[in-house]
């Protein structure tokens, strides 16, 4: 299939998984319900049928076990892609991710390594049960030895996931499930990868930089279009890789515009946005013509879904923040 039909993000992820498994026998998929059921979001549909149960494994229900097992497999030279069904359930696996996956290469001075991908859908906006809607990417972004990647479109999901699979180190690949099916794009199944250390500039503009990632890219792009109608030209940056953070692209953009809004779904406190603001404060203070503005989740527990929309940052908040920033003298 050449992929000429426009597909959504979850289909692009499925396409990338098929591509990787077809081209490398060491790639295996494991997780809860990833085999016969094809994953609760259908990201792994067809893999078991195409590659067999030896390479597509329905595991017992234990996230900690999935992570621990993946580390052993990866150290043997397999390239496991583990699915944690929802990011809210990744916490039992933290010990393995933080204490082992992230450290194996370092603590063995490169004798062993851990080429593993942990995929997890994350974020709010789909009226899900408790523990199914949080955005905790910052917890992972702080861990040395990990890479943390968040796609924001079908094409980038395809290219970034292929890169993550090929990368010789552990990658936490967080999928913004609110936009799993909200946008369709033509995705060529050509195996082209995208870099894991580079922000994507989705829209160029000279007036203000809007810096965001994941599902908030949707509202950020909407805000940029509406602001353009009022004559404000926004540069939209998709951070895409939370660790390592591409400081250069961000600094260059803010160096050009002198103004910026950082937009995220996660709570603001100690977040990836905090780090970006800190980098700008330390390294671009004299470029800034207005204080850095931030739009994000409250520092609260993610509310259960009746109040979810009150929590999720909205397009008009981004517009307001951008206008305030533009008006600052």
């Amino acid at each position: 299939m050449s992929g000429q039909e426009a597909i959504c993000m979850v289909e692009a992820i499925n396409l990338a998984l098929h591509h990787a498994m077809r081209n490398d026998n060491d790639v295996i998929v494991l997780g809860e319900d990833v085999g016969t059921n094809g994953g609760v979001f259908r990201a792994t549909v067809g893999l078991k049928e195409n590659f067999g149960i030896k390479r597509v494994m329905d595991t017992p229900l234990a996230e900690n076990m999935i992570a621990g097992l993946s580390i052993g497999m990866a150290a043997q030279g397999l390239k496991p892609i583990a699915e944690i069904q929802f990011m809210g359930f990744i916490f039992p696996a933290m010990e393995h991710i933080v204490c082992h996956a992230a450290r194996l290469r370092n603590r063995t001075r490169g004798r062993l390594s851990c080429p593993l991908v942990i995929r997890a859908p994350y974020g709010g906006g789909i009226h899900a049960p408790e523990h199914h809607s949080e955005s905790t990417e910052a917890i992972f972004a702080q861990i040395p030895g990990l890479r943390v990647v968040i796609p924001s479109s079908p094409q980038r999901a395809y290219g970034l996931l292929l890169s993550a699979i090929q990368n010789p180190d552990p990658v936490i690949f967080l999928e913004p499930k609110r936009i799993y099916r909200s946008q369709n794009q033509i995705v060529e199944d050509n195996g082209h990868t995208l870099p894991l250390d580079t922000c994507f500039t989705l829209r160029e503009g000279n007036d203000i930089s809007l810096i965001s990632w994941g599902s908030m890219i949707k509202e950020t792009l909407e805000a940029a279009s509406l602001l353009a109608e009022e004559g404000i030209q926004c540069e939209v940056i998709d951070v895409a890789t939370m660790n390592p953070l591409d400081r250069e692209t961000i600094l260059a953009s803010v160096g050009k515009t002198g103004r910026c809004v950082i937009i995220q779904e996660a709570p603001l406190n100690c977040s990836v946005g905090s780090e970006i603001a800190s980098i700008l404060a330390c390294e671009a203070l004299l470029d800034l013509r207005a204080p850095i503005a931030r739009v994000g989740g409250y520092d609260t527990v993610m509310p259960y879904f009746r109040l979810e929309n009150q929590y999720m940052p909205q397009t008009d908040q981004i517009i307001d923040a951008a206008k305030r920033t533009m008006e600052f003298d």
Partner: peptide, 10 residues
């Protein structure tokens, strides 16, 4: 113990 199971799986 779980790393051992991963190695054994491989």
């Amino acid at each position: 113990c779980l790393h051992a199971c991963g190695i054994a799986s491989a």
